[in-house]
C-alpha cells in the first residue's frame, strides 16, 4: 500500500470529503466543458482539459462558493487534477472539521 492510500484509510472523514469534492468537480467540469459526466477522469490534468489560468481561478472561486470556505486561487495549479485537488483539500486538518460540517458529512471518528 502506498503512503497516500494508508493516509486516506486512516481517516474516513478525509476520504468522505475527498469523495464529495471530487463528485462536485466532475459535475462542474462536465458542465463547463459540455462533455458527458462519464467521460470526466479524475487523473486527467486540468491543463489537458483545456483549462487556462483564468478558468482555473474561476473554478476555485466557484468551489469556494460551494464549500463556503476561503480557498487559495493557486490550488488548482498546484494540484492539477480532480483527484490531486480533492485529496489536497481533504488532507488539510484545519479545514477538515469545517468541511465536514459544511458538507453535512457524519463527523470523523477521530478529532
Amino acid at each position: 500500500m502506498d503512503s497516500m492510500m494508508s493516509e486516506r484509510a486512516a481517516d474516513p472523514g478525509a476520504a468522505a470529503i475527498e469523495r464529495e469534492i471530487a463528485g462536485w468537480m466532475r459535475g462542474y467540469l462536465a458542465e463547463l466543458l459540455e462533455i458527458p459526466l462519464e467521460e470526466i477522469d479524475d487523473d486527467t490534468s486540468f491543463d489537458r482539459y483545456g483549462l487556462d489560468s483564468l478558468a482555473s481561478v474561476g473554478m476555485i472561486g466557484d468551489l469556494e462558493e460551494w464549500l463556503g470556505v476561503e480557498l487559495d486561487p493557486v490550488l488548482a495549479s498546484d494540484h492539477p487534477s480532480i483527484r490531486a485537488l480533492a485529496r489536497a483539500l481533504a488532507a488539510d486538518e484545519r479545514r477538515r472539521l469545517l468541511l465536514t460540517r459544511r458538507l453535512r458529512l457524519p463527523a470523523a471518528s477521530r478529532p
Partner: peptide
Amino acid sequence: YKKYLGLLVLGFHA
C-alpha cells in the same frame, strides 16, 4: 475583480 486578483496571485506564484 475577484478573478483579476486571483490571477495576480497565480501569476506571481507560478
